[in-house]
């Protein structure tokens, strides 16, 4: 296997006396989808926030493309090529798809917005993901369905040439057909060479789209397996702690 895009070694994070992450090792590879699982309070969000630069880790080592890096601010994370698609999507409903995809990074020439350039690039990004569900790239986001919004949010990370895309519960609020669409989209995103991390509670989704599965239990990384080498039951046991060998309570 190639080298991981992101590699965490011995990462720790505590809030006051509470150790949320304890000596966590984690890897995600380009072209592969890694499922990050764990029960509520296992430390998934803390891990993601550390990678996104929202809440920096207290200790440990972060390697990005093999190099040791520091991530203390969201800006640093995004400069490295890390994009997070949050559960609540963070889109402006009053703006259209193009405007949302370029939000905060608008292209300008001589001080005025280059609408044509942005429209073209947005359309290309959506096409690279084979998106067919949106009617027009100039549609307002308020008129889009949940799945379409998720699509826009994911396409935005493509536009930003992300190397690592973190998806927080991408299918949580979606119906069956839309979930299917989004999972296909995630697959295509990974196939384009991006490392994708998915946080999910839905094991069916995880098994259908993920190549690797990592499980957190009370701040420890208790499993790091290829999807094909494991089963539903085994993963559930990891999540619930039934299979943690060395967990300190």
């Amino acid at each position: 296997m190639t080298d991981p895009v992101i590699e965490l070694r011995g990462v720790a994070k505590s809030f006051g006396p509470v150790d949320v992450l304890k000596d966590v090792d984690f890897k995600a590879y380009g072209g592969r989808v890694t499922g990050l699982l764990g029960d509520n309070g296992a430390g998934k969000s803390t891990l993601i926030k550390g990678l996104a630069g929202v809440q920096p880790f207290d200790g440990g080592e972060i390697r990005f493309d093999g190099e040791i890096v520091q991530i203390h601010t969201p800006r640093q994370a995004s400069n490295l090529g890390i994009e997070v698609v949050y559960q609540d999507l963070a889109l402006c409903e009053n703006l259209d798809i193009v405007q949302n995809m370029f939000l905060g990074r608008e292209e300008t020439s001589r001080g005025t917005l280059s609408e044509a350039t942005m429209e073209l690039q947005a359309a290309k990004a959506l096409q690279s993901l084979s998106v067919r569900t949106v009617k027009s790239v100039r549609q307002k986001v308020s008129s889009l369905s949940g799945g379409q919004r998720q699509t826009v949010a994911i396409a935005r990370s493509v536009l930003r040439k992300a190397k690592l895309v973190i998806l927080d519960e991408p299918t949580a609020a979606l119906g069956v057909a839309q979930t299917e669409q989004v999972l296909k989209l995630v697959r295509r995103l990974a196939d384009s060479g991006v490392a994708v991390i998915i946080i999910s509670h839905n094991l069916a989704d995880v098994f259908s789209v993920c190549d690797d599965i990592s499980v957190l239990y009370l701040g420890h990384m208790v499993a790091d397996v290829a999807t094909k080498d494991t089963t539903h039951t085994e993963v559930v046991e990891f999540i619930t702690g039934a299979r943690t060998a060395g967990a300190e309570a």
């Binding site: 800006r75 949050y86 999507l89 963070a90 905060g104």
Partner: peptide
């Protein structure tokens, strides 16, 4: 959406 704007930098 002020929060979305903030997250977009």
């Amino acid at each position: 959406n002020a929060e979305a704007a903030r997250r977009a930098g």
